[in-house]
Design a protein around this nucleic acid. Structure first.
Lengths: 253, 253
DNA sequence: CGTCTATTTGAAGAGTGTCAACTCCTGTGG
DNA sequence: CCACAGGAGTTGACACTCTTCAAATAGACG
């Protein structure tokens, strides 16, 4: 599941084994329950193994804004390092399987395995890129653009971890949750989806999303074909990292 | 100027000196010019020394969305590590002074100075927190809430680097730029600002922002008093980092 | 003093929100 | 096996925020 990291940097077999080796006892969280709540003081980092989750915040008047979705392979909360308290909550959307990693393990890992450190770092930057993209969507796109954008994003991300088969993704999101992520009302999301179905752009029923016309959708969403793929991720930095005189306990694989 | 980092982790005198020591030749960029453009392949990291800048993207129809502002002390583009090409542009809003740092220097620094590494890491996480906060604002707040939120954010950030004096900040932003950041039209931003002035919440004229009633503004913005202050940033991780058997070339100050 | 940009004002229109009702599906307990 | 409850999806009418367009004013700079 942490095969996602291989997308970010070339990992040696030893790196892979090290990755598979870590990870404490798994944990299960039922759908619609918080994994961590705002105000919590998290003590571990976890990796989402299966299921779907989201980060969100609740406003004073009870409305909710989902800031991002977590799909299998995603890492939750390097935040330990910054905040004593969480400034937002993370909830399971479906039932969810987690792998815990104590942070000393993470620190050791990043020190001993420069390529893993780099992959983690890049994955964090990708998250940031996604957040920026969402800001653009919420700020400047109308309802159709937002829906198209979000579905494309989720589609690509699932594709990157091998969860797409023939334009189909399992997406157990309610229209309510889509609305909370897009800054719209469920009613309006519904109308947009129906419009998309009528024009044969996609179908989204029974928790199954099928993109019939990805090209046209991406036009509506104004997404560049590969905005997440990091296509030619520069490896200058990577190679420098490896050349670097490793006074500092290098390792051989 | 890189005193901002001291907010994130306790730095030793040696750390400080190391920070001041780096930084290549300064660079100047005129107002309304790009510092780096979308599609560029950045070769250096830079720190904003003076002036105001923003990250933005242009949509197909020419509209612009500003995703974040950069104020003195902010670091631009650890992105080198991830993308070959920039997925967005950075523009100078006012005339701007930059300090360049080649990335080998950055890598060396982060390896040799764990506390600096931690500070950088936290500063990146703070950026992420700001992005999330902006998503909430764009998704779920009305125009008044958004304006109030953005002005509070900028106010607090300037305060953190010592650029606030008696509720006053120099903010050379046009209403057009505010609108591009908030996902609104300049016309509407104008109306909201006038409303705020009429109700004695703030004044914003001649590039000078004065918050007359910060408390009430924060209510409208729904911002927690200290959302950026990272009040009790946990230092468990920090102390672990220092204890860690530094096979790896520790340094003494 | 004239030009350019930024700000201000008004009126009309579009896109979403709100509210409320109704349907469909799924799972549950009698 | 059926009735029922509850959540999710669907539909329509109407209200409202924000946008759009256009034009006037004010300020900054050469």
């Amino acid at each position: 599941l942490t095969r996602k990291l291989a997308n970010f940097a070339p990992l040696s077999d030893g790196d892979m084994r090290a990755l598979d080796g870590i990870g404490g006892p798994g944990q299960h969280v039922d759908a619609h329950h918080d994994i961590v709540s705002e105000g919590d003081i998290p003590h571990a980092i976890f990796v989402l193994q299966a299921g779907l989750a989201c980060r969100y915040r609740i406003l004073n008047d009870g409305r909710r804004q989902i800031t991002s979705f977590l799909i299998p392979g995603d890492i939750c909360d390097l935040h330990v390092f910054l905040f004593r308290k969480m400034d937002h909550s993370i909830a399971a959307i479906t039932a969810v399987e987690l792998a815990n990693i104590a942070w000393p393990e993470v620190i050791d890992l990043t020190f001993d395995r420069p390529r893993i450190a780099m992959a983690l770092w890049r994955s964090a930057l990708q998250e940031e890129a996604i957040l920026r993209e969402r800001i653009v969507a919420l700020g400047r796109r109308d309802a159709r653009g937002r829906v198209a954008y979000l579905l494309c994003e989720l589609f690509w991300r699932h594709k990157l971890v091998g969860l797409v088969e023939d334009q189909c993704v399992t997406l157990p999101l309610t229209q309510n949750e889509l609305a909370d992520a897009l800054g719209l009302t469920p009613v309006h999301v519904n109308r947009v989806l129906q419009d998309f179905r009528r024009t044969k752009l996609l179908s989204l029923e029974q928790r199954l999303l099928v993109l019939h016309d990805l090209g046209r959708l991406q036009l509506i969403a104004e997404i560049k074909e590969d905005y997440l793929l990091l296509g030619g991720a520069s490896d200058i930095a990577g190679s420098y990292l490896e050349q670097r005189p490793l006074l500092r306990g290098s390792q051989s694989d």
